[in-house]
């Protein structure tokens, strides 16, 4: 009876501001996914490269480190094309050229419902 239990999809939350990261993690977990935390893009890349299974990346844009969230999104699209990408920022307009195709953008403060909806639509449950 060892059920072929489906593993829970994992979302990498990348945000340098701990409070905001905390609530983003809550949001991801509330939606029924596993949250993995990184406080900048470099750390996020290290986690991705470690081979830990990640199905979605939810990242801020302005963060300290060698690359920002936009660059991270592009690297992810390039190297791990299957991963769902969500980007949030206080910037008013993020031109679609900067973000890789298929990435979702949320202006801060973001609407929890639309973030959850996007995760549910894009990730295997």
């Amino acid at each position: 009876m060892a059920s072929a239990q489906k593993p829970v999809a994992a979302v990498l939350v990348v945000e340098d501001e701990p409070l905001i990261r905390m609530s983003a993690v809550d949001l991801v977990e509330e939606a029924g996914f596993k949250a993995v935390e990184a406080d900048n893009a470099d750390q996020a890349l290290a986690i991705l490269q470690s081979g830990e299974p990640i199905h979605g990346v939810f990242t801020d844009i302005d963060m300290p480190g060698s690359i920002d969230g936009v660059a991270l999104a592009n690297v992810v699209r390039e190297q791990w094309p299957g991963i769902v990408i969500l980007v949030a920022s206080g910037k008013r307009h993020v031109s679609e050229v900067q973000l890789p195709p298929g990435a979702h953008y949320f202006p801060k403060p973001y609407d929890a419902k639309s973030v959850i909806r996007t995760l549910e639509d894009g990730l295997p449950i």
Partner: peptide, 13 residues
């Protein structure tokens, strides 16, 4: 505006 919105995001959190 960028800063204000980050602040609002903080308030939200």
């Amino acid at each position: 505006s960028h800063r204000l919105k980050n602040t609002l995001a903080m308030v939200q959190a």
